[in-house]
């Protein structure tokens, strides 16, 4: 049955719509995490458990770290405490929580019924991914390393502070 696929996909779309319509960045991030988890579930239902795990570790994990950084670095002091109390209000967390609960129930159902790859596609496990990456796709992996290097150097250049310790581009 494809119902798990469509349910997870619907949640991903819903959560992403919520991400781009939230005015508060932290609220948007909450929905972004849900969206990424839903995409991981989509991968899982398509028979790619390894991609699903990577999605959770890399994207949801990294986004969570970003989330923590945003809270820690941008909101210090008394105001932050008040704001954090506001975030505890149910209307903020109830939406993402419900979506996450549905996803959890779905994951539990898929694990119990062993319905991996229920869309009729072949299951691709970690071993197959590794063999492909270090076999035919080896040069692409190397190229991807250069791509990440370019992103790193570009970000470093843009965020670098001058000798005086002041960010140059900002006025």
């Amino acid at each position: 049955m494809n119902i798990t696929f469509y349910l997870a996909a619907t949640i991903a779309v819903l959560a992403t719509v919520m991400v781009i319509t939230r005015a508060n960045g932290v609220h948007a991030l909450l929905y972004l995490v849900v969206s990424l988890l839903a995409i991981a579930l989509v991968f899982y239902s398509l028979g790619a458990p390894f991609a699903a795990a990577l999605e959770v570790i890399v994207y949801a994990g990294a986004i969570m770290v970003l989330f923590v950084f945003v809270v820690m670095m941008l909101n210090l002091g008394e105001i932050a405490a008040v704001r954090e109390a506001q975030w505890m209000a149910p209307r903020i967390w109830i939406g993402p929580s419900i979506l996450s609960l549905i996803l959890t129930a779905q994951l539990a159902y898929m694990l119990v019924s062993n319905e991996i790859g229920n869309t009729g596609r072949a299951v691709v496990d970690a071993r197959a991914v590794g063999l492909a990456l270090y076999g035919p796709y080896l040069l692409c992996v190397e190229l991807a390393s250069m791509l990440l290097l370019a992103a790193l150097v570009g970000a470093y250049r843009l965020a670098e502070t001058g000798r005086s310790g002041v960010i140059k581009g900002g006025h």
């Binding site: 796709y137 190229l143 991807a144 370019a150 992103a151 970000a155 250049r157 843009l158 140059k168 581009g169």
Partner: peptide, 29 residues
């Protein structure tokens, strides 16, 4: 397609850094 996309992204991401390289110029950033 895989190498095509990676090559294109490598080109584009590096270009972003190059275009904004003179950071003291607001227009470049």
């Amino acid at each position: 397609f895989a190498s095509f996309f990676l090559g294109l992204e490598t080109l584009s991401i590096a270009l972003i850094g190059l275009i904004a390289y003179p950071r003291s110029r607001d227009r470049a950033v």
